[in-house]
Amino acid sequence: MMKVVYTGEMDPRLCKSVLGETIPALAEKDADVIYLDADLMSCIGTAKWAKANPGRAINCGIAEANMVGVACGLASAGFKPIVHTFGPFASRRCYDQAFLSGGYAKNDVTIIGTDPGVTATMNGGTHMPFEDVALYRALPGATVIDVTDPTMLISVLGQCVNRPGVKYIRVGRKQYAKVYEEGSDLPIGKAVTLREGSDIAIFACGIMVHEAMQAAGTLAAEGIQAAVIDMFTIKPLDVEAVEAWAKKCGAVLVAENHNKFGGLWSAVSEVLAQKRPVPAGYVAVEDEFGEVGPQGYLQERFGLTAAHIVEQAKSIIAKKS
């Protein structure tokens, strides 16, 4: 079952609370699921459950490289580890361990990186990964997901624990706009059409899905019909969806809360270049480091708003012959 219920309203659930409920629920359902954290259990609401279940939840201290290695060792003993820390430490800090002890050694692990991109807000530039997707895309066989809303978070986490390879899930801890009806299944690797359109196809992921939907509304008022496609699975990319929408609309825009190098824009461009070259562009971070501030300010600062999408969409459509 999957139903799109987007109205622009926020989902009342905080993603940190959803993580705090979903991780214990998965562990209670499957005795092989084991949860590891690097001293950030209290940030996602798992601390109380972890204390009561010391054999199911391992606090590895502030040592992320070791944590991922330990998770991989547990995987070799038949466990299904879920590892959590903030995005930069779940990617850059432990990348070699995820790559070799995980991917290369065929130890299957699920890694959750919270507060991706501008959602790191007040923790600032040191905690603001704009490159985590690029890193994990380059890991052979990896699954890379930028979560759209709490319902999707529950759905993909449940799939990831039983999926082979290294799975990287990036998700903010706060609220997201509600996109999917509670209980919806979002199969990994399958893009979701959120809004039909014929003038341009907007592929978005993470917090940019909401911005894209807002932009599509603005464009419609000006007579431009923009399709919006939720590309929450950045790897393996739904190549057929990219091809089909490029063919239908003849113009493509990608919106992502990530560096323009190596993320969804790169992934979509690779498909377009090979399969169906059409005018295309992006709304993404212009190869910069992050900085501190509220999310609204940061989205303006790095050009990640609905207004930026509207402007880009018009400029791409103007290139259609």
Binding site: M67, G69, C72, G73, L74, A75, S76, A77, Q97, S101
Partner: peptide, 23 residues
């Protein structure tokens, strides 16, 4: 266990030892 990137086997061994205990 797969090794070669120096240091990584140490964490893997810890995870394996923990896994034996939990099993």
């Amino acid at each position: 266990m797969t090794t070669g990137s120096l240091g990584q086997g140490t964490s893997l061994a810890c995870g394996m030892a923990l896994g034996e205990k939990l099993r």
